[in-house]
């Protein structure tokens, strides 16, 4: 696989009334062609600024951004214009032209690219069919729902058959049901047209739904990056852990843990479970061998990218030495962490 976008030591400092804001600090990141890549982080982390360097709406103060071999961060004039026609973009507030109907909104980038009129008609028809708005061609944006507006936005962004689609919080203004529909559409665009999608969101659910890979941003830096499965199943950075626990409830929070400890006085361990190749019922095997009892007090298992993973919080009851031996055996089979000391 080749690289669609690479951020090479990208920094951006805004200067507002003598105050300096380091929106991006030395970001190093590569986005593979054909993937859906998510950028997640709290508000102000620098996600939008990073995304906007890809089509040079924002210019880095240091470093460079390379898209399909071209250094977009240094392009100007007509060359920049042509590069932008290869990069679609959708927005949180849709940014449709209110004075044009749906048809003419979608036709806009085609006319800009110099596509002949007859071809535009066919292409717009095709796009409206793709986003399911054939019957709304003559409606104006003010007459559409939020979800419909974003679908027009997607049709417009895909019109010139771009290699890359940028999405800045495209579902953040939509309700959960509509968000699902829009994400489905993006997934289809990725699958059917092979467009590389770089999407910014503050919602971990969106990442889980659609992304292949994810980068977590904080204070202008990428603090963690990896496949969505890896990041969700074993988050490393504290920010990532907070984001993951906002959507997955596999481990008890501080309050729940307090309550558990008040009731359960045995040794508490967290056992990592994931897709296992073997059929070995290792927990009951170990329990029988060491004559200890397992008491599951908390837990959760999720499926991501067709793989299972989760965590069980378990109380071990039995003779101290037996419990110790049992923990050793479990550790051989999978990941374990201790919540109490004997």
């Amino acid at each position: 696989m080749s690289t669609a976008i690479s951020f090479e030591g990208v920094s951006k400092t805004f200067e507002v009334k003598g105050r300096r804001v380091d929106a991006l600090r030395d970001v190093q990141l590569e986005v593979e062609r054909g993937t859906v890549f998510g950028l997640v982080g709290y508000s102000g982390a620098g996600k939008s600024t990073l995304l906007r360097t890809v089509n040079a709406l924002e210019r880095p103060t240091a470093g460079r951004v390379v898209v399909d071999g071209a250094v977009v961060s240094e392009l100007q004039g007509a060359a920049l214009s042509r590069a932008r026609q290869r990069i679609g973009m959708i927005f949180q507030q849709f940014n449709l032209l209110q004075s044009r109907n749906v048809y003419r909104n979608v036709a806009y980038p085609l006319a800009l690219a110099g596509v002949p009129k007859a071809e535009i008609v066919d292409r717009v028809e095709e796009l409206l069919e793709f986003v399911g708005l054939t019957d709304k061609a003559l409606s104006y944006p003010a007459q559409l729902s939020g979800g419909q507006k974003q679908r027009v936005g997607i049709a417009r962004a895909l019109a010139t058959r771009p290699d890359i689609l940028l999405s800045d919080e495209a579902t953040s203004a939509l309700d959960p049901q509509t968000t699902g529909e829009v994400l489905d559409l993006l997934r289809r665009a990725n699958a059917e047209y092979g467009v590389t999608i770089l999407l910014v969101t503050h919602e971990m659910d969106v990442i889980r739904e659609i992304a292949d890979r994810v980068a977590v941003m904080q204070d202008g830096q990428v603090v963690e990056t990896g496949s969505v499965y890896d990041v969700f199943s074993a988050p490393l950075a504290a920010t990532t852990q907070r984001f993951v626990s906002s959507v997955l409830h596999h481990v008890p929070g501080a309050d729940a843990l307090e309550r558990i400890k008040r009731v359960h006085h045995g040794r508490l361990v967290q056992i990592h479970v994931e897709n296992r190749e073997s059929n070995d019922p290792f927990l009951s095997r170990i329990a029988r061998r060491h004559d200890v009892d397992f008491n599951v007090v908390y837990g959760g298992v999720s499926e991501l990218q067709s793989r299972l993973f989760g965590t069980l919080t378990v109380e071990l009851l039995g003779d101290d030495l037996d419990v110790e031996a049992a923990i050793r055996d479990i550790r051989e089979a999978t990941g374990v962490s201790e919540l109490t000391h004997a």
Partner: peptide, 9 residues
């Protein structure tokens, strides 16, 4: 901004 992003000068 949408216009600029589409490549309009």
């Amino acid at each position: 901004e949408a216009g600029a992003a589409m490549g309009a000068r």
